[in-house]
């Protein structure tokens, strides 16, 4: 019986090679592996054998069954690979698929979102304030008295004698501090307006992000110039890349003191000097400083008790640097060929 089984195996394996269609495969399955197939017949006879032989032959029969089943599966795969050609025509997989429509968030908003997210991780909360604002919030409370020459730096659209379109998001600092006691960590993105004639570099409407952090002046919770540098350097390395260097130089803003202009190493030329950075290797990206005691007084904080820093950056400028955009007007034309690039 053992020999008969081996012969069956030989024959079956030979037959397996010649199978070419689904029908032939099925016939083979029925003939050898079916319920009334040849293997089943041998299995049925096992009971007539002496125990020793029964064990050996039984084992062999099982092995052959497994082998043939596997062989059949393999043959199936082989046969079915050719089969579809007969059933339906092959599709042209190089034809374009149906791309679902995909819009974009405006690049300025994306820039704001990215910046918001970084500061959010440092515990800064997003707040906003009105765009049409009382002169008091845009100037007086920010330590910019009437007739002060620095008002020249913040040329402003007026709606009436004491109502204007805010020329800076620093207004939000005041509104927040009037309502809330320290500790404060906020950033305020938004639109600002200045009567500049529109050209590739200027727009009468643009976006700024203001930041403010205030803490008690006592050890441990005091916020000092070193923290200002710390927060800004973490932001800059996260947003512009870990190799970006930062430097500060003194500047003047009426609402901060000491005030600083913050520059980063030019990412384009790596600090060697190019047309983007005007050959200096450095790019101005934001203004910052310690909140002026007069500003604290204006909101009813005791400057002896609290210290803090504030900073402000131009969103358009940062987006233009990041993406290499050379004309600010593109942001407001809303040409989808432009918008689709971000």
């Amino acid at each position: 019986m053992k020999e008969a089984l081996l012969e069956l195996r030989e024959k079956a394996l030979e037959e397996l090679k010649s199978l070419r269609s689904a029908e032939e495969l099925e016939l083979f399955r029925v003939k050898y592996l079916g319920r009334k197939g040849l293997l089943s017949e041998y299995m049925a006879q096992l009971s007539t054998l002496p125990p020793d032989e029964k064990r050996v032959v039984g084992k062999l029969a099982n092995e052959i069954k497994v082998e043939l089943t596997r062989g059949l599966e393999e043959a199936c795969r082989g046969v079915l690979q050719y089969a579809p050609a007969k059933v339906s025509p092959v599709i042209d997989v190089s034809l374009p698929g149906h791309i679902p429509p995909r819009g974009r968030t405006h690049p300025l908003v994306q820039t704001i979102q990215e910046i918001k997210e970084i500061f959010g991780r440092m515990g800064f909360q997003v707040v906003s304030g009105p765009e049409v604002e009382l002169e008091y919030f845009n100037f007086e409370a920010l330590n910019i008295p009437p007739d002060h020459p620095s008002r020249d730096d913040f040329d402003t659209f007026y709606v009436s004698d004491d109502v204007l379109l805010r020329s800076q998001t620093s207004t939000v600092q005041i509104r927040v501090m009037q309502k809330q006691k320290p500790p404060i960590r906020i950033i305020a993105p938004g639109k600002v307006f200045r009567p500049d004639t529109v050209d590739a570099r200027h727009s009468f409407m643009f976006h700024q992000i203001e930041g403010l952090m205030v803490g008690g002046s006592t050890a441990g919770e005091g916020v000092n110039f070193g923290h200002l540098k710390g927060v800004l350097s973490l932001f800059i390395k996260t947003y512009f890349g870990p190799d970006t260097r930062m430097r500060l130089r003194p500047s003047f803003f009426p609402f901060t003191e000491p005030s600083a202009e913050v520059e980063i190493s030019c990412s384009l030329c790596k600090g060697k000097g190019c047309s983007v950075c005007g050959g200096s290797g450095w790019l101005e990206i934001l203004g910052a400083g310690m909140v002026h005691p007069n500003v604290f007084k204006a909101v009813g904080y005791d400057p002896e008790q609290y210290t803090g820093f504030a900073f402000g950056m131009g969103v358009e400028r940062i987006a233009m640097l990041k993406y290499g955009i050379d004309d600010i007007r593109l942001f407001f034309e809303n040409d989808v060929r432009f918008l689709a690039q971000f």
């Binding site: 429509p101 405006h106 908003v109 765009e131 009468f204 409407m205 942001f331 809303n334 918008l339 689709a340």
Partner: peptide, 10 residues
């Protein structure tokens, strides 16, 4: 499929 626009307030 919508693109966000930012336009002038004035």
């Amino acid at each position: 499929g919508f693109f966000e626009a930012v336009t002038y307030s004035i």
